[in-house]
């Protein structure tokens, strides 16, 4: 039963990923002109002129003279083999450029997700159980402000506080001495020391909304008759709340991973740009601005796939956790 569901859900990924790849490809194609136009313009700035023949030559070499669908299928065909094409701007294979940054992005998103849960779960439960207490009001207020503050603004404010009050630059993920060093324990510790800021910045709005969701779900559940049943059994207040309503309220909480992840990935892009993190965001922005098609396409595709996979994981977790979903 469960395995059938999971298999079905995994099969569903195929059309989704296909759609994602089409969207990514179309987005990359959307700007007027192509990389060569940008390239020629750049050369023009430094008074170099490319003759028509070499332009055509370059076009053919990059396959830019072929019809769109041919370019698309070529692109996808190579993708399947792990070849993301060449970056025009960097003159190296895209896969060399993206994986390191994607790994950091993934790690950052995952760390943030953990942070978000660790903070939102207890606060959400507390807020619901002690409805209208001082703590609830404080949590609600902070939650609202967290929701209302754009990531980049929060990043800027924290950086401002860092510079003005602590006199240190808190951007980046690594200190200078580790930036290009190979992985080591020291580098890892250094990373952890830098990671908290982007995690807090990224996690704040998701935490805020998860607190609100947890609180609202739990408030609904706390009034359900089965809570009374448990109470009438003689269960202590703490355990009955943890075992029954919290357990039930956890389901919608789990299913939110599905949309928290897209939000985190989105937020990570902006935050990374402000905090100059070596993740996907800044490089993607640069690639988009210079119309470095294969590089930008790889990022859009990978980031979107990441969220589609996140949805898959949350659906599977939900099935494992909630017997009702299984039998529907």
């Amino acid at each position: 039963m469960i395995w059938r569901f999971i298999l079905k859900r995994i099969l569903w990924m195929v059309p989704f990923l296909f759609a994602v790849s089409v969207v990514a490809f179309l987005l990359i194609q959307a700007p007027p002109g192509d990389y060569l136009t940008t390239y020629i313009a750049k050369l023009g700035e430094s008074n170099e002129v490319l003759d028509q023949a070499s332009v055509e030559n370059l076009r053919a070499r990059f396959g830019l003279d072929q019809p769109l669908y041919v370019q698309y299928f070529k692109w996808v065909g190579n993708l399947v083999q792990g070849d993301f094409g060449m970056s025009f701007e960097w003159r190296q294979p895209v896969s060399d450029l993206v994986w390191g940054r994607m790994a950091l992005t993934l790690m950052l998103s995952f760390a943030t997700l953990l942070f978000t849960w660790a903070v939102a779960f207890p606060i959400g439960v507390y807020s619901a159980v002690r409805k209208y207490s001082v703590g609830d009001y404080i949590a609600t207020t902070i939650g609202f402000i967290g929701l209302a503050t754009p990531n980049f603004l929060l990043a800027l404010i924290l950086m401002y506080v860092g510079v003005v009050h602590f006199g240190s630059d808190v951007g980046g993920l690594f200190s200078n001495e580790y930036a290009n060093a190979p992985w080591s324990w020291g580098k890892f510790v250094d990373l952890m020391q830098h990671l908290w800021l982007p995690v807090v910045v990224l996690g704040t709005s998701a935490t805020a909304s998860l607190i609100r969701i947890m609180r609202a779900n739990l408030l609904d559940e706390l009034n359900k008759p089965y809570v009374d049943t448990a109470r009438a059994k003689g269960l202590s207040e703490f355990w009955l709340i943890m075992k029954y309503p919290v357990r039930v309220a956890l389901n919608p909480f789990i299913s939110t991973i599905g949309w928290v992840l897209p939000n985190l990935v989105s937020g990570a892009v902006v935050t990374a740009i402000v905090l100059s993190l070596p993740t996907a965001g800044p490089l993607m922005l640069q690639a988009l601005l210079s119309q470095d098609m294969y590089l930008a396409g790889a990022f859009v595709l990978l980031l979107s796939s990441l969220t589609v996979i996140g949805m898959l994981i949350s659906d599977i977790l939900l099935v494992l956790l909630d017997p009702r979903v299984r039998y529907e």
Binding site: P31, V269, M284, V300
Partner: peptide, 21 residues
């Protein structure tokens, strides 16, 4: 709707907005 919801908005916006002259 599910598909649109699963897309990370900012990279998509960035790509769309980058297309604006």
């Amino acid at each position: 709707i599910e598909f649109v919801l699963s897309l990370p908005t900012i990279p998509i916006w960035l790509a769309l907005a980058a297309a604006l002259p």
